[in-house]
Design a protein around this nucleic acid. Structure first.
Lengths: 341, 341
DNA sequence: CTGAAAGCGCTAACAC
DNA sequence: GTGTTAGCGCTTTCAG
């Protein structure tokens, strides 16, 4: 391939500077500003209840800037007894634009309160969450999936002050997606519902919850529980699932998520079936490519935008010793109606 | 929706225990084991060159376990002058199964060396990387995208010892994807290549690099530079791009990534065109749904698996003061041949 | 209003 | 081999 011309100024694989460039400490700032470290600490954190002369303030700020002073987070955490880190644990599932956006907004909202969000992709092999939490010294950890009792205990033990799974006592977002999907289908006159489970083990627990929700909706409508069939993201496998459904006269299927739904669509294609006439399918997530299928996928999506604000608020309140706000429970997916159901 | 039955033992929105459950310190362990803190530190980190009696070791370990001792990471980082945190900066793009897997493996490889990986989704609004780096006190930061000089400098200033963008001096993986895509098409006899750019601003820089690679391949083959058309993930927009290509007698198009490729396929459909006969399209990433399109998408994918091992190795070496290993450069996407080109 | 002093929990020279 | 002793950089009472 040969050496290519590099854009100037773009370092590639850089080592530390020869002399590790000792970071300026708060003592340095104090010296330059001609005040004590205490004063520096006060103005930099603008401690309430302190009345520092404007001139002194200015000098300190000026000194800090000129030295490119960056408080040492570990030292601060050690002294203050708490870090400004919030850890977000993400399940092993594709992170689409929706979730990215949620994360971005959550990070922004948290940043406004001086908190830093980092994420940890949980996975089978990876370090357990409590260990990561301890490593980064997180003050709070947020989970997309509920934590089991052991994990929660360990998290507390590792110093995490609060734990905020999305699932709350009042409502289970996972359940509600299944519920909403099934209810939508039932509302369109379907009396025999199918459920497309992912074959992937990692998604199992979440899928089971969603299925439960769908089953609840069926029960309430007085129809049979969903006919469950599993599939991976392979047309052939999905085709088999489709056979099961048609054989049992299912007319509408809730897919675990959009990817699964797209697989179902592909499976239908190999049978020469078309949605929604032959079989209606509804997905979940509204992934970017959901509108590019034939027919465009009817799906649901979490309104992640305001969720992020609420989560941020709850965490800040929690860290401040308050009680997490109740509205956290009121998270429901919204319908994105297209043409597949 | 009504109250639903909760699985027992699954906490929902948990506050810290009433009494914050003072974590055991190394002094506690020392007391219980009847030794000094130094000894505790030695056995717990099993410091090389120390020869501690097996019996003492056992007592210390036992005491640590019984107290559920967890070293305080901030204190450790402060004293040792370096944390065990590696920060991975991810661009604002969908994280598919491939990247997830890469991250998981990277985390595992790093964990084997006592390092903890956390990730940060970079985005427009979000806190700048150096700030996050400082907050978590990362020892190293890895980027999927290259860092500009300012960022790199700031990163060092924030205490990050090493910076390892994937792009190296010898080879540019981004460029090479464009190159490979175009070369593949050229190899199949196409003499007039199109390039599908994403409309999304965030992807722009990456896309430009890939396009450069494609242009290089064209130049080397002695054919015209790619005909560039932009599209978002909407069939109508993509259809317009397709018109541009067909109007300029393009017969094969390289798409920025699979999602863009799928959009192109959708755009072709609205024109009644079929791949690869009317227009060949090749994607990049091998996203899960790439095999579910009609026709299944021919695409490329990074062999992330061994990349992760090499990155981990390089980082460990770098942290130990060594020189990052050269083979980092040799990262090339592999072809996933299906039917769209 | 500002400074002195005491740690936060841990590591690492250096003695014993 | 193990304990003693300094700090790491910062926050935070408590005097001045």
């Amino acid at each position: 391939m040969g050496p290519t011309v590099r854009k100037p100024g773009v370092p590639c694989c850089e080592r530390a500077m020869d002399r590790p460039a000792k970071r300026a400490t708060s003592a340095d700032v104090a010296r330059v500003a001609g005040v004590s470290r205490t004063t520096v600490s006060f103005v930099l954190n603008d401690k309430p209840g302190q009345t520092i002369p404007a001139e002194t303030r200015r000098r300190v700020l000026e000194a800090a800037r000129s030295l490119a002073y960056q408080p040492h987070s570990s030292a601060r955490a050690l002294a203050a007894g708490r870090s400004d880190i919030v850890l977000l644990s993400l399940p092993a599932m594709p992170i689409g634009a929706g979730i990215s956006r949620f994360i971005e907004e959550l990070a922004t909202a948290l940043a406004e309160h001086g908190l830093t969000l980092v994420t940890h992709l949980s996975g089978a092999q990876v370090r357990p969450l409590p260990a990561v939490c301890a490593s980064v010294n997180a003050s709070a950890v947020i989970g997309f999936e509920p934590f089991d009792a052991d994990t929660a205990r360990a998290l507390h033990g590792a110093g995490a002050v609060f734990v905020f799974p999305f699932r709350t006592a009042d409502a289970d977002p996972m359940r509600s997606v299944g519920r909403l999907q099934a209810a939508y289908l039932i509302g369109r006159g379907h009396r025999r519902i199918g459920y497309a489970m992912p074959l992937s083990r990692g998604l199992r627990a979440m899928a089971e919850d969603r299925l439960d929700g769908a089953a609840e909706a069926c029960a309430e409508a007085g129809i049979d529980a969903p006919v469950v069939a599993s599939t991976d993201l392979e047309a052939a496998t999905a085709a088999r699932a489709v056979s099961e459904w048609t054989a049992r006269s299912v007319t509408g299927v809730c897919a675990f998520n959009d990817e699964t739904a797209i697989a179902v669509l592909a499976g239908m294609r190999t049978h020469g079936l078309a949605a929604p006439a032959d079989l209606a399918v509804v997905g979940m997530d509204d992934i970017p490519t959901a509108r590019l299928t034939v027919p465009p996928l009817t799906t649901f999506a979490f309104a992640l935008a305001d969720l992020s604000r609420r989560q941020a608020k709850a965490i800040v309140a929690g860290l401040a010793g308050g009680v997490p706000s109740a509205p956290l429970a009121a998270i429901a997916p919204r319908l994105v109606e297209r043409a597949s159901a």
